[in-house]
């Protein structure tokens, strides 16, 4: 195995593009090293992106936030402006693994790993985040929900890597939230999860919303019907009920060691409703 730690994105892209055999990007390593340990992958090349300065920063701009691909989830949790604007996204990032894992893991890595149960992805999807992808043919931006294409599979092409995750600027009365269900209080993979981001108009009426679900389908889902159920409402009982129904209806889960179809379908509704209530409150709704 060859290990490289380039100092520029360009160099990283060059290494990945040229690589013969299997090449992997190393950001936090909390997935890659586990897979290497278990013998599931045997990389020929590992490109460590943590020495690329541009990827180590969180930048606040007029159009929102740019989170470098090598920024750890712990660092996101220390950025006050980011926490203020996107509390749900930051909370989701702070739920991945332990404090030890959060010192290393990144939301870009979480996204590329493409687990349907990834904690940060539903929050990013609800937030309308975009992935900035660099590759041999230059830069492109895609909606985060378009990065994973199936469990463990992403849409990145050979030589491509995510440089940063962009979050839009927050305007007016907005709030987001992410909730996951796990049997313990910490350290588990989400059995089912939900992210909600919303913006209020006049008098506390929801004028815009995005609802996402995790661990209920091969990829994280953006559930438009669920958003529709609450747009134009003040998140009253009836709206919450409809939101729950839409969330459950969108689920296409499997039975596995972590949960059942029945359980995931039911709890998806519970979490979507609870996340919506938190987001609504954060947006200043009553």
């Amino acid at each position: 195995m060859q290990y490289e730690a380039p100092e520029t994105t360009k160099a990283a892209v060059g290494l990945l593009a040229k690589a013969k055999g299997s090449a992997y990007v190393l950001a936090g390593g909390s997935d890659l090293l586990v897979r290497m340990k278990g013998g599931f992958v045997e990389p020929d090349l590992v490109v460590d992106i943590k020495r690329i300065k541009a990827m180590r920063e969180i930048k606040k701009t007029a159009s929102g936030f740019t989170i470098g691909a090598a920024v750890s989830c712990a660092e996101m949790n220390e950025n006050k402006a980011l926490i203020k604007a996107w509390p749900g996204v930051v909370e989701a990032a702070g739920l991945i693994g332990s404090k030890q894992v959060q010192s290393r893991c990144t939301v870009a890595g979480n996204l590329c790993n493409s687990s349907p149960a990834a904690d940060s992805v539903p929050a990013l999807v609800a937030a309308g985040a975009k992935a900035v992808i660099q590759g041999p043919k230059g830069k492109r931006k895609v909606a985060v929900e378009d990065v994973p294409v199936g469990p463990g599979k992403n849409s990145l092409k050979k030589g491509e890597l995510i440089e940063a995750i962009e979050l839009p600027a927050r305007k007016g009365k907005s709030g987001d939230a992410y909730l996951r269900f796990i049997p313990r209080s910490e350290m588990d993979i989400a059995v089912v999860s939900a992210g909600v981001s919303l913006t209020l108009g006049d008098k506390g009426v929801i004028k815009d919303a995005r609802v996402s679900l995790g661990a209920v389908a091969p990829t994280v889902l953006l559930v438009k019907a669920a958003a529709k159920a609450i747009i134009g409402t003040k998140l009253d009982e009836a709206a919450l009920e409809k939101l729950g129904q839409a969330a459950s209806a969108a689920c296409k889960p499997i039975d596995d060691k972590r949960g059942t179809i029945e359980f995931r379908t039911k709890v998806a509704a519970v979490l979507a409703k609870r996340a919506a209530q938190i987001a609504y409150k954060r947006a200043g709704g009553k």
């Binding site: 290990y3 190393l26 936090g28 390593g29 909390s30 090293l33 586990v34 340990k37 278990g38 590992v46 460590d48 750890s72 712990a74 693994g97 332990s98 404090k99 030890q100 894992v101 010192s103 290393r104 350290m187």
Partner: peptide, 23 residues
């Protein structure tokens, strides 16, 4: 060996990590 137990915790640049998940 998979970052689930914390027995290998050390600090790297002031942050606690599982040393089994660091090269």
């Amino acid at each position: 060996g998979t970052g689930d137990c914390g027995s290998c915790s050390v600090q790297v640049d002031g942050r606690v990590v599982c040393s089994c998940l660091v090269l």
